[in-house]
């Protein structure tokens, strides 16, 4: 405890670790600047040599929302609990994209950065973490569109709906945290598994596709009958989307099922951290 956090300990002991390894938070602190630089790199690389650059972070969710509105609202006739479908959909697309993009990038991140893993020591968790943080930046940029949509619907109230500023909006950071915890937990599992089983890399696109349909992105969670709600909420993204909609639009409050989502997210994160730490020692040999 008396150790200075800025300088590593004078004597470092290298030996095989056995059993459950604790999270090395101090190392993570020492390497905090690397987290920043890796996130910065992921963002830079993503938008290098593109004409529109960072604008894609806005364009992508908007285009998605347009397609979903045409497909599921206009053609399939899915309703939005009486809210305008575009904003109803967008409040879900935003956190969903954070989750899905991060899974796709972070899940493969250790393998894509294998030359770093085999040459240099640093806390390995930084690699998936940085991929997720880059997605968080995209999320924040995409939020600008959400605010624009909110202003639009505030100025032009449709027949039975207008956006109000409510105290519920203050809970948004909590639901964002839930989204982040879920994303980190699942990414830790997938990225560590992908080092050993490359099958995971092939599974991730399917996984996110199917996962989207068990998450109320294009439809309302009210469509799910009451007796299934608890099981449905085992998917932590259900809690996230319900929370976002409640905080921003004022849909019915998510209720107790949000605790189910939160507990599942925490369990996935904690087990993910331990699994990651356990596998970490073999990464350089197995990758």
């Amino acid at each position: 405890m008396s150790q200075s956090t800025l300088t590593p300990p004078p004597v470092l002991l290298i030996r095989p670790t056995r059993g459950l390894a604790a999270l090395n938070l101090r190392d993570l602190w020492v390497y905090r600047e690397l987290i920043y630089f890796m996130t910065w790199r992921d963002l830079l690389v993503r938008y290098k040599q593109t004409v529109l650059g960072i604008l894609w972070a806005v364009l992508q969710p908007v285009l998605q929302m347009v397609v979903f509105t045409l497909l599921f609202n206009k053609m399939a006739g899915l309703s939005a609990e009486g809210f305008p479908y575009p904003i109803f959909n967008f409040t879900a697309v935003l956190p969903w994209n954070l989750f899905a993009h991060a899974l796709n990038v972070a899940g493969r991140s250790l393998v894509t950065n294998r030359n770093m893993l085999t040459k240099i020591y640093f806390p390995r968790v930084i690699i998936p973490l940085a991929s997720i943080l880059a997605s968080v930046v995209d999320f924040l940029i995409g939020s600008v569109v959400l605010v624009a949509l909110m202003i639009y619907y505030h100025l032009q109230p449709t027949a039975h709906y207008t956006i109000q500023i409510t105290p519920a909006m203050l809970t948004l950071p909590l639901f964002f945290l839930l989204a982040f915890v879920s994303t980190l937990g699942v990414s830790l599992w997938l990225s560590a598994l992908n080092v050993i089983y490359r099958d995971v890399g092939h599974v991730i696109p399917f996984l996110t596709q199917i996962w989207m349909f068990i998450t109320p992105v294009v439809y309302s969670s009210r469509e799910v009958s009451a007796q299934w709600r608890v099981i449905y909420a085992l998917n932590p993204m259900v809690g996230v989307v319900d929370g976002f909609r409640w905080a921003i639009l004022g849909t019915q409050p998510p209720g107790d099922t949000v605790w189910v989502s939160a507990i599942v997210a925490l369990v996935v994160l904690i087990t993910g951290l331990f699994y990651f730490r356990r596998m970490e020692r073999g990464f350089a040999d197995e990758i």
Partner: peptide
């Protein structure tokens, strides 16, 4: 340099590597 772990034995290192 702590890239990989030894299977047995140990090493003590004084200072930043």
């Amino acid at each position: 340099s702590r890239v990989t772990e030894p299977t047995e034995g140990q090493a003590e290192i004084r200072g930043r590597v």
